[in-house]
Simulated scan of single mutants.
Amino acid sequence: MKEISAKDLQEKLEKGENLHLIDVREDDEVAQGIIPGALHIRLSEIPERMNELDKDKHYYMICRSGGRSGRATEFLNEQGYHVTNMAGGMLAWEGDVQ
């Protein structure tokens, strides 16, 4: 499974790269702050909502600590999507949130 550190992902965003972020946390967790521009799809909804994703795009998966996003990353990779897990999750994130 591909992984990226929170710091490296933050640097990509700060350089202005057009990234596709998916936050798989629960609603109450997202209410405490989400990375600007991230799409919120709860982990339990990934199988039914993966048709909203484009197999030609690269996605970065985010959760609180990296575990749930890791499961989403593995699942989507098996389905033929290009996905990278943000290691450490929002606990490791030092960038802006909204």
Score class of each variant (00 low, 15 high):
K2W: 04
E3I: 10
S5E: 05
A6K: 11
D8K: 12
D8G: 02
L9C: 11
L9M: 12
E11R: 13
K12P: 08
L13V: 10
E14A: 14
K15Q: 15
G16Q: 13
E17T: 09
N18T: 10
H20K: 09
L21F: 04
I22A: 00
I22E: 02
D23T: 02
D23L: 08
V24T: 09
R25D: 10
R25S: 07
E26K: 14
D27V: 13
D27E: 15
V30T: 09
V30R: 05
A31K: 14
A31D: 12
Q32W: 00
Q32R: 11
G33I: 01
I35N: 06
I35S: 02
A38P: 04
L39R: 15
H40M: 08
H40I: 06
H40E: 12
H40D: 09
I41E: 10
R42A: 09
L43D: 04
L43H: 11
E45K: 11
E45G: 00
E45Q: 14
P47F: 03
P47K: 04
P47C: 00
E48Y: 01
E48C: 00
R49K: 15
M50W: 04
M50A: 02
L53K: 15
D54V: 14
K55M: 12
D56C: 03
K57H: 10
Y60E: 09
M61Q: 02
R64M: 11
R64P: 01
S65H: 12
S65M: 10
G66A: 03
G67D: 11
S69K: 11
G70I: 02
G70E: 04
N77W: 04
N77C: 06
N77R: 12
Q79M: 15
G80K: 03
G80D: 06
V83I: 15
T84Q: 12
N85K: 01
N85Q: 03
M86K: 05
A87V: 04
A87L: 12
G89D: 06
A92K: 10
E94K: 13
D96V: 00
D96R: 03
D96M: 00
V97D: 00
